[in-house]
Write a protein that binds this DNA or RNA. Structure first.
Length: 409
RNA sequence: GCGGGCGUAGCUCAGCUGGUUAGAGCGCUAGGUUGUGGCUCUGGAGGUCGCCGGUUCGAAACCGGUCGCUCGCCCCA
């Protein structure tokens, strides 16, 4: 039996890593005032297709679509934002601006798997709606950084920042860029030739050496910014600098779609192969309206849990249980009674199902037990239990009453 | 969708230019230890050599195809 290509089972060790990342992230996001939400894993195709555009790669080749028995066309979500925007509109939440949401969700894209890329992957994300001020952008960047800091991976990552300006600035720039690139049309990579027609801004982050050479003397986007766009970016930079959030300006960092505006940022690591982006986001002022809502601005980020997991140096360790060991078969019933009692008190208690004392002790050691309780009816008759500290090897008698206290300590 | 590398035990890998019962370490398991783990010693289980076809007296090895994994391109978390 093989799993579907690009999907992975989370075995106990990895499961623990994922839950640890989510737990830390939610703690941070909630401290920043974001409320956790969840949306369905699938939506009507339109929910994703409309904002991304039929021509986009995600819609044209990466979306998992479902034709259900009622004749509806559905799609597994390829990213988090569109579903949350739909949630906002469907539930009348546009009345309560501003609003801050966060989530940890599985996403699906039909792509060729490689390092840091799977067909089912998991994203942590935040969306902040209803705020036009750059303080919202700063807050979103700050919460992202704080998550990476709390997970102790911020030292492997650097913040790339850019602005793509408002729609007006971008229009002006796009014309200048296209005009410039036309002069080199025959030297561009095959991909970029296509992009020149479809989405010229995307050429800016081409990995092709020839393209990069051509881009060296291309017009700069920042020179086309109108005063409003410039002021917005300067404002954001000022907040980041005041808060000592280090960043490097990367004028090649872009987003292709028209509903994006102003801020674009990515936390990038060199330790992840070709997919270095760990946490990325930006401002999407046109999106809610595009999806049929009011003209509500938004800014947010998405972050890949699998990518963060690859950077973690400190793996979380599982709970260390106390293992109950009956001395002989006659003690088994009493041992199970103790197991049930201690578990009612919320203690992590383990007990094997077979084996002699030696065997059970070995198993307990392998399971990383903190304590073992060696139980015999004889000791129990005197209200005593033998408690073994598996780290020090010390073993001593404790009364039944004081046992829970010893274990909690 | 396109290109490179790789498929031998649960894991990491050996297996010389084709030669008969396919190996190691780790892990798993049973015992040395009839009331005590981590160390050590000794046994044991576990593989249609990814799959199909071809070449050959003979294929894990060579050839073709296929599936899978992996890395990169496109794109993106």
């Amino acid at each position: 039996m093989q799993p579907v290509r690009g999907t992975h089972d989370l075995l106990p060790e990895e499961f623990l890593v994922h839950s640890y990342i989510k737990k830390v992230a939610f703690e941070v996001m909630e401290n920043f005032g974001f409320s956790g939400v969840d949306t369905p894993i699938f939506e009507f195709l339109e929910v994703f297709a409309r904002p991304l555009g039929d021509a986009s790669d995600i819609v044209s080749k990466e979306m998992y679509t479902i034709h259900d028995k009622g004749g509806e066309v559905l799609a597994l979500r390829p990213e988090g934002t569109a579903g949350v925007v739909r949630m906002l509109i469907s539930n009348g939440l546009q009345q309560e601006m501003p609003a801050k949401f966060c989530y940890a969700i599985p996403c699906f894209r039909y792509e060729r798997p490689q390092k840091g890329r799977q067909r089912q992957f998991h994203q942590i994300g935040t969306e902040l709606f209803g705020v036009s001020s750059f303080y919202a952008d700063a807050e979103v960047i700050a919460v992202g950084l704080e998550i990476l800091k709390s997970l102790k991976v911020d030292n492997q990552v650097r913040l790339h920042l850019n602005t793509i300006g408002d729609l007006e600035s971008r229009k002006v720039y796009r014309e200048k860029l296209v005009e410039y690139l036309r002069g080199y049309e025959n030297d561009l990579s095959p991909e970029s030739k296509i992009r020149l027609e479809k989405n010229p801004m995307r050429i800016l982050d081409s990995k092709d050496q020839g393209d990069r050479k051509i881009l060296e003397s291309a017009p700069l986007l920042h020179d086309s910014l109108n005063p409003e766009s410039r002021a917005f970016f300067d404002g954001l930079r000022n907040v980041l600098e005041t808060q000592n959030i280090a960043y490097t300006i990367d004028q090649k960092l872009v987003r292709g779609l028209d509903y994006y505006s102003h801020t674009v940022f990515e936390f990038i690591s060199d330790n992840l192969g070709a997919q270095g982006t760990v946490l990325a986001g930006g401002r999407y002022d046109g999106l809610v309206k595009l999806m049929g809502g009011q003209d509500i601005p938004g800014v947010g980020f998405g972050s890949g849990i699998e990518r963060i997991a690859m950077l973690l140096t400190e793996k979380p360790s599982p709970k260390r249980p106390t293992t109950i060991i009956p001395v002989s078969a006659e003690d088994e019933e009493a041992a199970w009674s103790l197991v049930f009692n201690l578990r009612k008190q919320g203690l992590p208690i383990d007990m094997g199902y077979s084996g002699n004392l030696s065997k059970r002790m070995k198993k307990a050691s392998k399971n990383n037990a903190r304590y073992c309780i060696v139980l015999s009816k004889g000791d129990l008759a005197n209200n005593q239990l033998s408690l073994k500290d598996m780290d020090s090897g010390d073993q001593f008698m404790v009364s039944v009453e004081e046992l829970p206290l010893r274990l909690k300590a």
